[in-house]
Design a protein around this nucleic acid. Structure first.
Lengths: 221, 221
DNA sequence: CCGGATCCGTAACGATACTG
DNA sequence: CAGTATCGTTACGGATCCGG
């Protein structure tokens, strides 16, 4: 007797959600796709260690579950890209709440052999966003960390992140990942932050604002 | 060559969270334990289909990861109980955001052979709670659905659920699960709800309040 | 009966090789 | 670059057994 694919078979919102996104790699794929459409190779690089076969079947599953659409880019550069659907994009809350919870686990420092990409901290940062403080703001912050560039837009009370450069950033923060981590997760006072090995384009008040907007302390529920 | 247990090995808040709670059954165990300590047998019954071996190893993993503590109840009735730690309890946000996302998946009706326990809808209900409306409330609602009894407490702007009876409920709703689902997920107007095969102890305004507090429409982001 | 431990077949995953 | 194919390993599902 064979069970027809591994499912919880529970009429429960949590169980049904886990039936769809509970398998290995799925949420990490969502993490990558939340900052814009990606190609097969980009995903493989970002997820590291995933086999091309698994990546392929995952993407097919996600397509079947209406989390992802696959489309061919118009010429020039005819390429397949994977993009989140509306249903997939609504997983942002799930990713943020998991990232917020997981931020506590980052206190245990980076282990040997553990991989790292600066933009992974983007979600940790966004998960600490304080909507009260950002209510009436309309700001754009650009970050150039190691060899990656991404930006955060605060608008309509919400904060969202994307890869690549920003249009007309109010602040540009350029540093290595260690200084960025101190900025985001540390209790770095703005004076000290400005003195670290980071190049900041923008005024001190704006930097202070960033620190407060995404400050994990005090821990909010 | 053997990889030392399956881990993402990514210095990323999401990936580290998934390393801890991403395995099968773990979040469903958290779901059960969020409404109070449980015994081995209770968990086995609630999770259905889980083997005693897996349940055992999962609980041990969770204990090792500081999500759960195992303690023996004082006599009479010397029994092992499993209880969430502080870190485990802080997963409530994760469970709620997943339940909120998964509620959309419940529109596809209950499949043949799919299991069901009324209290599973408790999390679906709590995930739709509107903190604005409940800001200054201090209410207790008791639900007796099929053969299960649980209650919801709204206090300090937050809503929490627990198994068992309430102390002095402001409202008691008694019905089968179908009527409860209509109450929670349907757009049942209060008049119609009062006319369904449900016995309500409490006044109409209180019932109306419940409907509004946990109304999934309009979908909030 | 509760709280597991042990064993075994199957499904999912990981690594690599291969192809259009 | 964007995947398929293959194959060894690990995790899970189901059943059985066992001590208190």
């Amino acid at each position: 007797m064979h069970t027809e694919r591994r499912t919880y078979s529970q009429y429960c919102p949590l169980a049904r959600a886990l039936d769809v996104i509970g398998e290995r790699w799925t949420l990490l794929l969502v993490r990558e796709l939340l900052s814009g459409p990606k190609r097969f190779k980009d995903l493989q690089d970002a997820l590291i260690g995933i086999g091309t076969n698994l990546l392929s079947t995952r993407l097919k599953d996600m397509e079947k579950n209406d989390l992802v659409v696959r489309s061919k880019l118009p010429p020039p550069g005819v390429a397949m890209v994977y993009e989140l659907t509306e249903r997939g994009r609504r997983l942002d809350e799930v990713v943020l709440s998991l990232a917020r919870w997981g931020t506590g686990l980052l206190e245990e420092p980076r282990k040997a052999g553990e991989h790292f990409r600066p933009h992974w901290l983007l979600h940790g940062m966004l998960s600490m966003y304080d909507p009260e403080l950002g209510r009436d703001l309309r700001m754009t912050y650009e970050f150039r960390i190691d060899d990656e560039v991404f930006h955060v837009i605060v608008r309509d009370g919400k904060a969202s992140g994307d890869m690549g450069r920003a249009q007309r950033p109010d602040l540009v923060w350029m540093s290595d990942s260690r200084a960025f981590m101190e900025l985001v997760f540390g209790v770095t006072p703005v004076d000290k932050a400005a003195n670290s090995n980071a190049l900041v384009v923008g005024d001190r008040d704006t930097l202070q604002q960033v620190l407060e907007l995404f400050n994990p302390v005090p821990m909010r529920r």
